[in-house]
Design a protein around this nucleic acid. Structure first.
Lengths: 221, 221
DNA sequence: TGGATAAACCTATCATACAAAAAAGCACAG
DNA sequence: CTGTGCTTTTTTGTATGATAGGTTTATCCA
C-alpha cells in the first residue's frame, strides 16, 4: 500500500488518473498479483482508489463513506452515546456555518433559501423528502465553508446519525414543532445570506440545542 | 466487507475478539478464500480489524492512522493549504480543551503539568523530545475530554501536520520565543487544572494564533 | 467519417500449493 | 499439580495458473 501511494505522489496523479495494471505493478515490484490486489483493495477501502471489474484502478476523490465506517466502528467499540457523536457534529458545524457566512457565493445562498422553501412545501407530506433536503442543506453549508475537510468530516457523521433523523422528526409530533424546526433552518440560511457569522452561529446553536432536547425526550441514549 | 461487519455486530464482538478463520468464513459464505482475504484486507486498512501472519483476524480498537491516510489524501487531491488543515485542528482542539477542563481527572492534570515541566527542562537541548512531549500533551487533552472521537480525529491530524512541527520550532529562533511557546502550554495546563474552560480556550486560542503566525513567517503555505 | 464488430486487455473469482508464523497439544521434570 | 520445552496442528502470507466477465482499443466496412 505504501508503494502504491508513493507511486501516486511521485507521478503526481490527480483524481481520475489511472494506475498501471495489476500485472504490471506486480512484475515491476517483483511480487505476485495476489499481493498487489490486496493492497489495491486496502486503498479502495480507504476510498483513495476506485476499482471496478475490467477497468484499471483510478485515483478517487475524497468521500465520506470510509471515514463513516471508521467513526462508526469507534462508536461501536467504545459504546459511545448519541450525545457524544452530536457533540462532535455540533463542534464542526458551528465552525462551518461561520465560515459559510464569510465565504458563501450567491448561488449557494440562493440554493439554501430554496431548500428551506422546499422543506416548508413538503411539510406534513413527505418526511423522506424533508430529510433529503435537510441533508443537502447541511452539506451545502459545509461546501460553502470553502474547506473540503469539513465536508468530508460532516458528511461522514451524517451517515452515522442518519438513523436518528427519523426519530427526531417523528418526535416533533405537532405541525407547529415541525414548522419551528424548518424556521430554524431558515434563520440559518438568512444569516448566511446576510454574511453575518455571529447570527449564523447563534441560529445553528439553537438548531442543535433543539435537536438535542428532542432526542433526549425521545429517550435516545 | 459488509458481511464481516455484520458478523461482528451480530455476535457483539469486542476489541480483541477473534473472527473465524478465513477458510471457515469462506466455506460458510460459499466463496473462495481469495475474496474473504481481500475483504479482511479492506477492513484492516480501515483499522477495523487487525491481521497478522499465523494469527486469526481480531477486532481492532480505533486508531488514527487510517483516518490520517484519508485526510492526507483529501489534502493531496484538493491541494489544500496548511492553514485549512490547521483551521480544522483548531476547531477540534478548542472544543477538547474546554471539555478537558470540565472532565479531567487529577492524574491527567498532573501529567499535563509534568509534560510542561519536561518541555522546559529539555529546551535548547533536544527538540525531538520536546516534540514528543508536545504531541503527548495535545493527545492527553483530547483523552481528558472524555470523547474518544476527538482523540481519533485530533491524532490523525497530528500525523499529517507532524512535518510542520519542526518548521515551527526552528522558526522560533530565539530562546525567548521558544520559552514563550512552552509557557503557553503551561497556561493551558493550569487552566485545565483549575477547571476553567474559558481560560483554557483563551490559552489554546493564543497557542494556535502564535503557531499560525510563526508558520506564516516561515513561508509555509 | 461514423459506426459496428472483433480483438486485446483487464479485473473478479476460483483452486491449489507451499512457506512462515502462531497456537495448541503433549510429554516430562520438578 | 505445575510449568517448561518440544512437537504437531492450525492459520495466515504468498505464489501460480486458469476461467469468466467486463472495458477499452483497434479494425474494418459502408
Amino acid at each position: 500500500m505504501a508503494e502504491i501511494r508513493k507511486f501516486i505522489h511521485d507521478n503526481e496523479l490527480k483524481v481520475g488518473d489511472v494506475l498501471p495494471s495489476e500485472s504490471r505493478f506486480a512484475t515491476q515490484l517483483g511480487i505476485s498479483r495476489t499481493v498487489i490486489r490486496e493492497a489495491l483493495r486496502g486503498l479502495a477501502a480507504l476510498r483513495i482508489l476506485e476499482v471496478g471489474n475490467g477497468r484499471r484502478a483510478r485515483v478517487a476523490g475524497p468521500t465520506a463513506e470510509a471515514l463513516a465506517a471508521i467513526v462508526e466502528h469507534t462508536v461501536y467499540t467504545r459504546q459511545l452515546s448519541v450525545a457524544q457523536v452530536q457533540d462532535v457534529r455540533r463542534t464542526l458545524e458551528m465552525r462551518t456555518v461561520s465560515l459559510a457566512a464569510l465565504h458563501r457565493n450567491d448561488r449557494q445562498a440562493l440554493e439554501m433559501l430554496e431548500l428551506v422553501a422546499g422543506m416548508e412545501d413538503a411539510i406534513e407530506r413527505d418526511s423522506h423528502r424533508i430529510r433529503d433536503l435537510d441533508i443537502r442543506f447541511h452539506e451545502l453549508i459545509a461546501q460553502a465553508s470553502g474547506n473540503p475537510i469539513y465536508s468530508v468530516l460532516i458528511n461522514s457523521f451524517r451517515i452515522i446519525t442518519r438513523k436518528t433523523w427519523d426519530i427526531g422528526w417523528h418526535a416533533r409530533g405537532t405541525p407547529e414543532a415541525r414548522l419551528e424546526n424548518i424556521k430554524c433552518h431558515e434563520r440559518i440560511a438568512r444569516a448566511i445570506t446576510a454574511r453575518d457569522p455571529v447570527r449564523a452561529e447563534a441560529a445553528m446553536s439553537e438548531h442543535f440545542d433543539s435537536s438535542f432536547m428532542v432526542l433526549l425526550k425521545a429517550g435516545v441514549n
